[in-house]
């Protein structure tokens, strides 16, 4: 595999909504194969808009998004801020859904679905419905659903923001493990410095009004990263560095109130 080779190049990308708000302005960003890239920034900096543009759920007003040539239409998985599961459908059916929409039968999808449920530690919950699961488990189902089509890129929009810290740490660890085993590319939107430093090899810090890239930080700490990394001085130093950049980004906001 072509580690680090550009997968997507965003060239001068901007988005202005019909109400005149410019959510994103002149974003130049290259996402490399196998990256774990976090978009970090205050609310209103356009990080979710950037994610929707990458997903193709929205089209840019200005600029271009160039995917690498051999990439099909089918190359992204999406994990939303909320678990966003079908409440009436079982865990199995929820994970099967993306394949089902592509015409894959239950029997044909079953091996892939079972394997993924095992990877997110939900074996045995195939027949449960979402309301019988905890918040963390629902998010695991959502991640499994995002990965079931074997996408090249997994887009995650603040997926763990609503979870308690213990659950969040556990899911961070499990996500990294999955990422290292499967080597997909992740674009991860978050407003947590600690989470982005723990997970990513690249952090793109964004500023608001209009949403734009402020600065990119490389996180060179080696993988695998585990609980020991979370308490190491190196991690603390990296968090401080990222935090400082984020403060600058927030202060650079034109007419910022605080």
């Amino acid at each position: 595999m072509n580690e680090g080779a550009p997968l997507l190049v965003m060239d001068g990308v901007g988005k202005t909504f019909s109400n005149g708000v410019t959510a994103l302005d002149d974003v130049n960003l290259t996402i490399g194969e196998g990256d774990f890239l976090s978009l970090l920034g205050p609310s209103g900096c356009g990080k979710s808009t950037a994610l929707r543009l990458i997903a193709g759920l929205s089209v840019p007003t200005r600029g271009r998004l160039d995917w690498r040539k051999e990439m099909g239409d089918d190359c992204v998985g999406f994990v939303f801020q909320e678990p966003t599961l079908l409440p009436w459908a079982s865990v199995f059916d929820n994970v099967w859904l993306p394949l089902r929409l592509r015409g894959v039968s239950r029997a044909k999808a079953a091996p892939a679905v079972h394997e993924l449920l095992e990877r997110v530690h939900l074996s045995g919950f195939e027949n449960a419905v979402p309301r019988e699961l905890s918040g963390g488990m629902k998010m695991r189902v959502s991640i499994a659903r995002g990965l079931v089509t074997k996408p090249r890129v997994l887009l995650m929009d603040e997926p763990f923001a609503a979870l308690d810290e213990i659950t969040r740490f556990k899911l961070n660890n499990d996500l990294l493990e999955l990422w290292q085993d499967e080597r997909f590319t992740v674009v991860f939107v978050t407003h947590s410095v600690f989470e982005s430093v723990f997970l990513s090899n690249r952090i793109v810090v964004m500023a608001a009004r209009p949403g734009r890239v402020h600065e990119e930080i490389a996180i060179d700490a080696p993988y695998p990263r585990d609980e020991a990394f979370r308490t190491s001085p190196g991690y603390a130093a990296l968090c401080r560095q990222a935090s400082d950049v984020l403060v600058l980004a927030i202060n650079s906001t034109h007419g910022a109130a605080a």
Binding site: E82, T84, L97, L101
Partner: peptide, 18 residues
């Protein structure tokens, strides 16, 4: 219908009927 779920269906190329 939940907006995100509709996005999910769009993302997965769901037809109107699906």
């Amino acid at each position: 219908v939940d907006r995100n779920l509709r996005d999910l269906f769009r993302l997965n190329g769901a037809t109107r009927w699906q």
